[in-house]
Design a protein around this nucleic acid. Structure first.
Lengths: 149, 149
DNA sequence: CATTATTAGTTGACATAGTCCACAAAAAAG
DNA sequence: CTTTTTTGTGGACTATGTCAACTAATAATG
C-alpha cells in the first residue's frame, strides 16, 4: 500500500471518466419528461412491484418526504397507483399503471439503446473483455462497499 | 449485436453499482464545507492554475453564471484570487491562495484515502487486476464517447 | 478605422432538486 | 394499557442549477 501513487491516479482518472459516461447516459435516459431521480423510482417500482414507499427510500437512499412528494406527483400523472394494504393501514402498495408500464418499458429500452451505442463499433471479443472487466471490478470492490467507506 | 440481452443487463448493473461507489466517494470527499461542484472547481484550478473562468466552464461543463457565482464565493472565502490579465482586460487569471492550496491538498488526500479504503483488503494481485480492468474499460469505451452518445 | 460580431464575465429572476423538522395515524413492543 | 417505532405527509427552507439580458473588452471584417 506504499508505492501505489500511480495506481490511485489511474483509479481517480477512471472515476472521473466513468462519472462522465454515467452523466451522459443519464441525460439521455431522460427526455421522458422525468428527472433522473424520478426515472430511478419508476424503474425500481417496475422491477419490484408491488412495493411500499419506505422500501424505495431505503433502496434508493432518497429522503422520505421527497419520496412522498414524487410518488404523489407520479400518482397524479397516472404513472402509478396506490392501494392501502389490507393488513397494515399505514402502508400503500404501489404499482405501475399501464401508462406507467409503458414508460417503464421506454426507460428500459432507452437505457439498453444507450449501452448498445456505447459498444457499437467494438468487436464481440472486445465487448466480452469489457464485460469481464466490469464483472471483475464489481466482484472485487463489491464486497466491502458499505463496510469500508 | 443481437443476443446481448444478458450482457446489457450486466452493464447496466455495473453502472448502478459504480454510480453508487462514485456517490459514496463524493459524499466523503466532501465534509470540507464545499459541495461536489465546488470541490471539482477547486481541484481543477489546482491542477491547471493559473486559469480563466471560461476554461473551467468548458472543462467541467458548468453554466457560466453559476461558475461566476462560485468563483465569487471562493474568492470571498479566500480560497482563490483573481488578477486581471495585462494583455486582455476581460480576463481574470485565477489561482489558488495558500489557503486554497491547503484545501486542494486536503481534497486530494481525501480522494486518495477513499480509494485506498476501497482497496484495503485486497491483495496486490487483485489490485493489479482491477487496475487493468479499469484501463481496459477506459481504453475501449473512451474513444467514441462524444461521437456516439 | 469604423462597424459588426464574439468573448468574458456579471446579475436578476427563476426553476429544480433535495433536506430538515414536526406531526398524525397505525402498529409493534413492553 | 402505555411507550416506542414505523409509515407517510406537509411546511419551510437551502442548495443547486438554468435562462436571459446586459456591460465591457477584444477580434474580425468591409
Amino acid at each position: 500500500m506504499n508505492n501505489n501513487k500511480q495506481l490511485i491516479t489511474t483509479i481517480r482518472q477512471f472515476n472521473r471518466f466513468y462519472a462522465n459516461i454515467l452523466g451522459l447516459l443519464d441525460q439521455h435516459v431522460l427526455n421522458t419528461g422525468y428527472s433522473l431521480t424520478e426515472a430511478r423510482i419508476i424503474l425500481e417500482i417496475g422491477f419490484i412491484q408491488p412495493c411500499i414507499a419506505n422500501q424505495l427510500v431505503d433502496k434508493l437512499t432518497i429522503d422520505r418526504s421527497y419520496m412522498s412528494r414524487i410518488i404523489t406527483k407520479l400518482s397524479n400523472d397516472g404513472i402509478l397507483s396506490k392501494e392501502t394494504s389490507t393488513t397494515d393501514n399505514r402502508i400503500s402498495l404501489i404499482h405501475l399503471t399501464s401508462k406507467g408500464m409503458t414508460l417503464f418499458n421506454q426507460l428500459n429500452e432507452r437505457s439498453d439503446e444507450q449501452i448498445m451505442k456505447l459498444l457499437h463499433d467494438l468487436s464481440q471479443e472486445e465487448i466480452a473483455e469489457i464485460h469481464n472487466a466490469m464483472l471483475l471490478i464489481q466482484r472485487k470492490l463489491g464486497g466491502d462497499l458499505h463496510d469500508t467507506i
